[in-house]
Amino acid sequence: MKKLTKILGSALSASAIFAGLAAAATLTISSNTLAAGNAAVTSCGVSSLAATRTVDNNGAVTQVDVRGIPQACAGQTLYVTLRGASGASLGSASTAIGSCSGGCSVSFASFSSVTASNLTGYAFAVRG
């Protein structure tokens, strides 16, 4: 009888824990945020972005311009990472994509610590 009491006590504790988990989970399911998350994940067409950079006379990057951003991306945020050897990050920045007609463009002036000769590429992400 004593053993059965212990077993029942353990089972009740476990039930209480899972009831808590289930309750927490259903809180999200019933929220508006989850309803929005259920919408299809779409892209505004950024699969082929390209950037150019300018340098000062010491070869330091003074500005990075990203052009040809689809108009559908306006209002979203563009993230850019400058890549060095083996794909290592040399620096990252983000900015809002303003409204535009035709292709949008954004500029970054925060990479002065990056030397152009170390730059091997760019990585872009757009998130709305």
């Binding site: 399911i29 989850l34 998350g37 892209s43 950024v46 699969s47 872009f124």
Partner: peptide, 20 residues
Amino acid sequence: VGYAATLNLTSEHLGAASQT
């Protein structure tokens, strides 16, 4: 149930590109 609840962390619009 816990895993299903984390689905709402994804964004509505995502896109990625790279340039070498």
